[in-house]
């Protein structure tokens, strides 16, 4: 367990995973559930246990839609989405770890000229440092 990473994630997110009472409402409401290897409730628990590296290596962290459904509906105000974001940042802040690269953008636009700017800037902000 890498305590340093755990502390970093807790500090960045401002989330206290100990507030979680393991009701699973986050995973029950998550629109990206099927796309994820680790689901929101597991992510909260894994952060609590300090299994950050496992999460950093998982594609799950790129599947969160940041729709805030888990944040809004959590009865304990845990805010799982903030953990996902902190873990993803812990990855992409490392050199060469951008999930979406600037050079890929022209291809995306070419593939679908209707893609709104909003989609591109949002994806870029989520996936790239």
């Amino acid at each position: 367990m890498n305590n340093n990473l755990k502390e970093q994630v807790l500090r960045m997110s401002g989330v206290n995973p100990l507030k979680c009472m393991r009701c699973g409402k986050c995973s029950a409401t998550c629109p990206s559930y099927d796309e994820m290897e680790y689901h929101p409730h597991q992510i909260v628990y894994m952060v609590e246990k300090g299994e950050i590296e496992k999460l950093m290596a998982s594609p799950s962290i790129y599947k969160c839609l940041s729709c805030f459904a888990c944040v809004e509906r959590c009865p304990r105000d845990v805010e799982p989405a903030k953990l996902v974001e902190a873990i993803r940042l812990a990855v992409i802040r490392q050199q060469g770890q951008n999930h979406l690269k600037a050079k890929d953008i022209p291809d995306l636009i070419e593939a679908d000229p209707d893609l709104p700017q909003q989609a591109l800037v949002t994806a870029f902000r989520k996936y790239t440092k």
């Binding site: 699973g24 409402k25 995973s27 029950a28 559930y33 689901h39 509906r73």
Partner: peptide
């Protein structure tokens, strides 16, 4: 079933879709 319901969505045909966590099976 250990888990919470996250969304209830009534359909036009009268059925109600219930989306929930089964935490022990790790399923939605």
């Amino acid at each position: 079933i250990k888990g919470m319901v996250g969304k209830v969505a009534p359909r036009a045909d009268g059925k109600i879709m219930v989306q929930a966590s089964d935490l022990l099976a790790n399923e939605q």
